[in-house]
């Protein structure tokens, strides 16, 4: 299972400015050496929050990733985030 690697990319992005800068410049290159499934790699590089969630990423990590993408929290950012997850059910998130 590669969910741990998916979670770790989100975790690195929200906490490490150098990784964030590398990912922002070239997401595919930034995760090239990560052990991700093709679906996980595609979802991450597209910053497709809905797809990343559906793949079982930890919701708090996905939210932290999204806050970092936005450069900080705002009400507008949160409403946009929730809209992207509209209708999804909670699933298994164990790694």
């Amino acid at each position: 299972m590669t969910r741990y690697a998916l979670d770790k990319v989100l975790w690195n992005y929200a906490r490490e400015p150098a990784f964030k800068a590398a990912f922002d410049a070239d997401p595919a290159a930034a995760v090239a050496n990560r052990e991700l499934s093709e679906a996980e790699r595609a979802a991450l590089t597209a910053r497709d929050l809905r797809a990343i969630f559906t793949l079982g990423a930890h919701p708090f990590l996905l939210y932290s990733f999204s806050i970092a993408v936005n450069g900080g929290w705002s009400m507008e950012m949160m409403m946009d985030y929730v809209a992207r997850l509209d209708g999804l059910e909670l699933g298994d998130i164990e790694t």
Partner: peptide
Amino acid sequence: NGVGGPGMI
């Protein structure tokens, strides 16, 4: 609470 999830708000 559903912080980070579809039920967040």
